[in-house]
Structures are given as C-alpha cells and as structure tokens.
C-alpha cells in the first residue's frame, strides 16, 4: 500500500506540473493579457510599459523557465490586476469553498442514497416514481433559478435566513440547499440503478430464501456491494464542488474559489489563474486518491497492483 501511495504521489506531482504548463501555454495563446490589465482606452506606450512590468516582453521560453522556477517554490507571482501575491489571495478563499462543499455533500450523500434505496426497494411503485421525479428534478434544475426562488421565498417573503453573504448558519442554509440538489439527484439515480442490478443477483435470492427481511437485504448486503458506482459519482460531485460553485457563489455573494477563477480568467490574470488551478488540482488529486482507497476498503478483492503487470 505504501509503495502504491508513493507512486500515486509522484504521478500527482507530474499531473500538477502538466496542468500548470498547459495553463501557462493556454493563457499566453489566448489574447493579450496586457490589454485587459490596462483597459480599452490605453495608449500604445503605456501598453509597452505594462508589458515590461509584467515580464511579458521576454521570449516565451524564458517566461516559462521563470514560471516553473517560481512554481517549484510555490510562488505564482503577483496578480496582474490586484498587484498582490496570487497564492495567498487564493488560499483566503479556500475555507468558504470547503465549508460549502462539505455542507452540500453532507446533505446530498445520505439523502441521495436513502432516496435511491427507497426506490430500489419497491421498483416501479408510487414511491419509486415520486423519488424519480425528485431526483431527476435535481439534475435538470437550473441552479440560478433555484437560488433566486429560494431567496425570494425565504428571506424576502418569510424573513428566514439571509439573502446573501458569508457567515453563520443563517447565511449557510440557502447556498447549501441550492448546491446539494444536483449531486443529490445524481447520487439517488445511480444508487437506484446499482441496487437494482445488485438485487437481481443470486446471493440476494439466497438471502431472501433464508428469510432475511427485504429491508435488511437491501440496506445491509446489497447496498455495500452497490457502493462502487455511488462512490465514484460522489467523488465526481465533490470534485465539481471543489472546483468552485460559480453560479451559487455569484448569486449568494459567497467568497469562494469559483468566482475568483472566473474573474481571473476574464481578466487573463495569469498568475492568479495559475495559482487557482494549482490549488484546485491538489484538491482533485487528493479526492480521487481517497475514492480509490475507499474502493479497496469496500471491496477487499480490489487491489491496486504495482506498476508493470500490464
């Protein structure tokens, strides 16, 4: 296991490196960052001056060398726009993103699995159909619509919770509710289909034959075996949440990482883009590693062999 972890770690460093290089290249292909920094009405000489200030007048190879050197020491330079070091500004936004992602997943996971299991327990029953509509509502709902509806109903009409902002529980409820619905829907759908597959297998029949209660069969035996796709989907949803919930952050004025990324991209603020991508990449890599480790825990037959056996 340790050897496996070590190998994954090395690979992850390589992945991060490749991602950053791609972002570096992409950022310099797409338009001229200087023009965005200085604004539309700037004179040509000012553009030149800013280009020099930002070291964008050097050959691309040299810029890349500087960039890699800086990245190795976790320096992403000074934000083109904000004139402050980029990485601390990104790290500042992490707690808001993490807490919201955790809250959304903490709501979505148990509720989604419960809904999915209820469906699978009595497939094609009325309960199943209602849950189906609820969970498919989650995947096709338009997030800003849901967010605005919640705002108009709760804080504006009823005076409950806050319309927007970052703070205690009363600020938390609406963004977390908005954000959890989509993963909830996906998790419920995948749970249902995986469970139905599992319930069709011989061992379930055997368990039923032994007189075990249906609920016990579903929730204890089948659910554990059906967990692999559910886990995978949950991992994906968590990764998406960590990437920043751009719409929810924008609507609720939530100071997370998603809006920062969008602003940085719109302004071609390359150091800031690179710093956000770096931080997000680390989150994604760790999430995916945890999911892989959870596979072996759920199903001890799964082994991640050392490289080279293929």
């Amino acid at each position: 296991m340790l050897a496996y972890l070590g190998r994954r770690l090395l690979q992850s460093v390589a992945v991060t490196f490749v991602v950053l290089s791609l972002v570096f290249v992409a950022g310099r292909i797409l338009g001229d960052p200087v023009r965005l920094v200085v604004g539309i009405e700037a004179s040509e000489e000012r553009v030149q001056r800013v280009r020099e200030q930002l070291n964008l007048n050097q050959p691309l190879g040299e810029q890349y060398a500087t960039f890699i050197g800086d990245a190795l020491s976790l320096q992403f330079g000074v934000s083109f726009w904000q004139k402050v070091p980029a990485l601390p500004r990104v790290l500042e936004r992490i707690p808001a993103t993490l807490t919201l992602a955790a809250a959304a997943l903490a709501l979505a996971l148990p509720l989604g699995i419960t809904l999915g299991a209820l469906s699978a327990l009595r497939p094609w029953s009325r309960v199943d159909r209602i849950t189906n509509v609820i969970s498919l509502g989650g995947v096709s709902i338009v997030e800003f619509w849901l967010a605005l509806m919640l705002i108009l109903i709760f804080p504006v009409r009823l005076g409950w919770f806050k319309t927007s902002g970052y703070g205690g529980i009363e600020y938390f409820v609406l963004p977390a509710l908005t954000l959890c619905y989509k993963p909830l829907g996906r998790i419920a759908q995948i749970t249902r289909s995986a469970l139905l597959d599992e319930l069709a297998k011989p061992y379930v029949k055997a368990a039923r034959a032994r007189g075990l209660k249906e609920r016990r069969v579903v929730f204890v035996h089948a659910l554990k075996n059906a967990a692999v796709p559910v886990l995978t989907i949950s991992g994906d949803e968590l990764a998406a949440l960590l990437n920043g919930a751009i719409i929810v952050e924008t609507v609720f004025g939530w100071p997370g990482i998603g809006r920062l990324t969008i602003q940085a991209l719109e302004r071609r603020d390359l150091p800031m883009v690179e710093a956000t991508v770096f931080v997000v990449a680390i989150f994604i890599i760790v999430t995916n590693l945890l999911v892989d480790m959870a596979y072996t825990w759920l199903n001890p037959r799964i082994r991640f062999s050392a490289a080279g056996d293929a």
Partner: peptide, 28 residues
C-alpha cells in the same frame, strides 16, 4: 481491466481533465 501503467495513465488524464478550468478549455 488491464490495470497497471495503463490504468495510471488514463486515470491521471482524468485528474488532469478535472483540474483544468472548463472556461479556459472552452476558450482554447
């Protein structure tokens, strides 16, 4: 199915894809 290096390669590609900002990819 094949595991090993092939698995590593494809899954790191997944990591890469998931870390790369959607908007930047779309713009590219």
């Amino acid at each position: 199915y094949y595991g090993g290096r092939l698995d590593d390669l494809i899954m790191r590609l997944v990591d890469l894809q998931m870390s790369f900002p959607f908007l930047l990819l779309a713009l590219l």
